[in-house]
Simulated assay, not measured.
Amino acid sequence: MDYQFKAGSIPLLVSMPHVGTDIPDDILATMTPAAVDKQDTDWHLARLYDFLGGMGASTLSARWSRYVIDVNRPPENTNLYPGQDTTGLCPVDTFHREPLYLEGRVPDQAEVQRRLQAYWKPYHDQLGAELERLLALHGAVVLWDAHSIASVVPRFFEGKLPDLNFGTADGASCAPGLSEAVVARALAQERFSVAVNGRFKGGHITRHYGRPQSNVHAIQLEMCQSTYMDEAAPYGYRPDRAAQVQGVLQEMMQAAAAWVRA
């Protein structure tokens, strides 16, 4: 199976496109030791969001590493942040500009297209099908795209990122009421810093599937990994830190679920 999926009963689907760590053997044979480290993974998100089952939310998480192909990038590989540096559909280097492929082994266009069909498409087929199912059942649905990233990545931004970064494609991917309800819960606490449509405005999943005019509302949360884990290898989960942010996460998810059912 190319992903892990669990169907829920409420109009909320949580997507975790960058949690995958598997790399097929034939692809791994072309890659450098930096790829084996998988440092740009959204580590431990399934554990951090383990309360979702009790809420009745649907969950979808990737099996394959973003180094194989990035399911949160457009299939035509357009830059989601024109004029800014970003990694592409089939990344060739890490967030720290370490090459992912051995010399002469960077995938050509035919290989990228093969990976689109084999690894990218199954995730999106399931994502689209579940949104359609929930929309038919409930008349409206929220898609929450869950991400995490190292708190300091000089390639993309200066200094430390805010702890909680919300993206709604500058308001285009969801109704204002949803983002207001969710962000209000985030702002009600003082431990974690918050940004809305700052450096992160939502990736392909948020922008493509968010159709508020059709009652599909998408919002992305990019969290600093320092809020719940060790950012250096071996990237251990920190229950002491996670306990602090998990309560805020749960309140935000409950706010999203309450809003869409109102």
Results as ranks from 00 to 15, higher is better:
A257G: 15
P212Y: 07
Q250P: 11
H138T: 01
R207S: 12
R115C: 06
D42T: 05
P17R: 02
Q4F: 09
E251T: 12
P212K: 02
G210D: 04
S148A: 08
D163T: 04
A140Q: 15
P154N: 11
L164G: 04
A172F: 02
Q213R: 12
P176T: 10
C224I: 05
S193M: 13
V19D: 01
C174I: 12
Y228R: 06
Y237T: 03
D50W: 10
Q225L: 14
C90F: 11
Q109C: 01
H96Y: 09
D40P: 12
H18W: 00
K6F: 05
S65P: 13
A255H: 11
M16G: 00
D125S: 02
G53N: 10
L221W: 13
E132N: 12
Q244T: 14
P162C: 11
M253D: 02
A188H: 00
S9C: 01
H44M: 13
D26Y: 12
P107H: 02
S193Q: 12
P91E: 06
Q109I: 01
G202H: 10
G202D: 15
R199P: 09
E222K: 11
A129Y: 06
L134I: 02
T227A: 15
R114A: 03
D108S: 07
F166M: 07
L48E: 04
V71M: 08
I27V: 14
F95R: 10
E222A: 14
A242V: 03
E103G: 12
V36Q: 14
P24V: 07
P91C: 04
R97E: 07
H204Y: 14
D42P: 02
V142I: 14
P234T: 12
G88M: 01
R191G: 04
N79Q: 03
P162V: 01
R114S: 07
G202F: 08
F5N: 02
I205D: 03
P154C: 10
Q213E: 12
E180C: 09
L137Y: 04
D2Y: 09
A136L: 11
C90R: 05
L131P: 02
Q126F: 05
H204Q: 05
G56V: 12
S193N: 15
E76P: 00
A118K: 08
N215T: 00
P11R: 00
R155S: 10
Q220G: 11
I10V: 15
K6T: 15
A57L: 06
A57F: 05
L28C: 04
V112P: 00
A136R: 14
E130Y: 09
A34F: 13
S173K: 07
A150I: 05
D70L: 06
V216L: 06
V68C: 05
Q109T: 04
G236T: 14
L45M: 15
F166V: 11
M253V: 09
L102G: 04
V14M: 08
L102A: 08
V153R: 03
N165P: 08
V71R: 03
L164P: 02
A118P: 03
N77A: 13
W144F: 15
V92D: 11
L137R: 11
S179Q: 09
F95Q: 07
I10A: 07
M229A: 14
D108A: 03
Q225P: 14
E98L: 13
L164H: 09
R199V: 15
V68Y: 03
S173R: 09
R185Y: 03
N77C: 01
